[in-house]
């Protein structure tokens, strides 16, 4: 949780070069650009954006079509090749159980992405509903829901996640994907809701909202057609960063033994298993770590770049 707060609240870090004249030149002098078009023009020139998008695409491909990257079966483990070194057939060597580290690492992407994406969507849905309603209605709805958010933030993220994940993971048969997803989804929405709330409060006092209200639009129409499209950008950025931290949290929970379990393939489990034997065989520890770090970094960099592009105040 602190990661997201850090990235979103620490103001001012625009990693791209400061480019002052946004609208100058480019042939179309007088044509006004929308925020999205302006942001896109800004993103196109941002190297970090391109690097992180390419990384994200590769990782998504790994999650969707692991067979493109490896033909080995990650579950085919032969003890006789325990800790065997890297070779042409197994790029990263074999781990303690004699499983192909490269294949396991590639297949690990799927669970990470799946848990991360679904948990983020769940958080996004809760955050959207809470943020919209608190921001729009204000008054006691706002007071009650804000207190509720305070209560959830009163429990440090990982501690809450441990308790919750243990609670959900009662079924010994399951591999824990659902439990971890729900846990992260339930705990992660607070920052998104707060961001949504503040941008809704800004948007609802605009003239066009007053105009729409005078034309007879009801609260539902006002919220969904007028306020939402104009206040959703920062919210989506927070969700992108949340996706990165959710992937990291999944690995942390799996590492501690309350996340994915059983025969599920997860970078967190691989790191936990390889840690004990790192002295003799560092590769099974290093590669899942590198893949996990790059994945998280890619999503957070992407969110950072998009945030910089959409928030002109930070330039």
């Amino acid at each position: 949780m602190s990661d997201i707060n850090a990235v979103t609240s620490a103001a001012g870090p625009s990693t791209q070069p400061q480019t002052e004249p946004k609208h100058a030149g480019r042939g179309k002098k007088d044509k006004p650009r929308s925020l999205a078009a302006d942001a896109w023009a800004d993103l196109r020139r941002n190297k970090i954006f391109w690097v992180s998008s390419i990384l994200v695409l590769i990782i998504l491909a790994m999650a969707l079509f692991p067979t493109l990257f490896t033909s080995a079966d990650p579950r085919e483990c032969v003890l006789s090749r325990q800790h065997a070194g890297a070779s042409g057939s197994a790029l990263f060597g074999y781990d303690f159980q004699g499983c192909d580290v490269y294949a396991k690492t590639i297949y690990g992407a799927r669970n990470s992405i799946e848990v991360g994406v679904v948990a983020t969507l769940l958080s996004g849905l809760i955050g959207l509903i809470f943020g919209l309603s608190t921001g729009y209605f204000g008054g006691w709805v706002d007071a009650v829901l804000s207190r509720f958010i305070d209560i959830i933030l009163g429990v440090p993220f990982l501690l809450g996640a441990i308790v919750l994940a243990k609670r959900f993971a009662q079924d010994p048969e399951s591999n824990g994907v659902l439990a971890v997803t729900v846990t992260l989804g339930i705990l992660g929405w607070t920052t998104a809701a707060r961001i949504m709330r503040s941008s809704v409060i800004t948007a609802k006092n605009q003239d066009y909202v007053a105009a729409a209200r005078m034309l007879g639009a009801g609260p539902g129409r006002l919220m969904l057609k007028h306020i939402l499209p104009n206040s959703i950008a920062p919210f989506i950025v927070v969700l992108t960063i949340l996706l990165g931290t959710n992937i990291a949290s999944e690995a942390t929970l799996s590492f501690l033994g309350v996340g994915l379990k059983g025969d599920a393939i997860s970078w967190g489990i691989s790191i936990a298993e390889a840690g004990a034997n790192a002295r003799t065989a560092p590769e099974p520890l290093v590669w899942p770590s590198v893949f996990l770090a790059v994945t998280v970094l890619a999503f957070i960099m992407l969110g950072d770049a998009v945030r910089d592009a959409f928030d002109p105040k930070l330039r």
Binding site: V7, A251, A278, R279, S289, L292, A293, V296, I300, D304
Partner: peptide, 23 residues
């Protein structure tokens, strides 16, 4: 700082132990 922010502790701690402690 962006890189440090993105490095999960489950990556940083074992790798630091491996590189600076063991190797």
């Amino acid at each position: 700082t962006l890189i440090i922010l993105s490095l999960p502790i489950v990556v940083l701690a074992p790798l630091a132990q491996l590189v600076f402690g063991i190797q």
